[in-house]
Amino acid sequence: MTDHIAKAYDSDILTLKTMLAEMGGLAEEQLNNAITALSKRDVVLADQVISRDDKLDKLEREIEEKAILTIAKRQPVALDLREIMVAIRVSSDIERIGDLAKNTAKRTHAISEALPRRLATGLARMGSMAQAQLKNVLDAYGLKDIDKAMQVWRADEDLDSLYNSIFRELLTYMMEDPRNISLCTHLLFGAKNLERIGDHTTNIAENIHYLIHGKTIGEGRPKNDVTSMMTAEVK
């Protein structure tokens, strides 16, 4: 894209992009640490995640202020307008991802016993899938890579499927022995958080689509989360 005649306009938009890149990097780190903390029951790392969430919140506010100021000063249109609107929306998705990572980390404290191996593997897989989704969507945003964004958008289905199977598995453990309920509930929330993070990455992918094509994505998002209909059947 050619530069604006007013150079300061370019630097306004560049500042926004830089802030978003910083925010995205921080969110990735937070998510990685939250997953590690939960699976290794590392409370020190968990606390670090919890305390650093403020930084994401602060960055989101700063991005919003910068975006509003740019709108007020420049009355952006067309691509510039989309760029700024998308920056606001993406920053809010990243902020929510940060909250979910924090909430996942918090549950480390409540887990006193080691995770059953199968479950630990499932959660770890879900964690790395969510991490990959976040990383890919942020790369796609930075590079304005629509194909990559659409890959993320479609891959959310896999994350949902994995969540379904973990959900089932946790239900089974709880039915087997009520003493598992406390642990499993926390893990269930952890898994739900990761599934929600996946949803936010698809939001970001949709915003990349809007940024590039100027249109919202037409089709419905691929959804595979069926846990809202699952019941524990006592046999």
């Binding site: 530069d3 005649i5 007013a6 306009y9 067309a78 510039d80």
Partner: peptide, 11 residues
């Protein structure tokens, strides 16, 4: 060209 003009990028 429209995009460049309305966004203030015209050379």
């Amino acid at each position: 060209r429209t995009q460049d003009y309305i966004t203030g990028r015209f050379g």
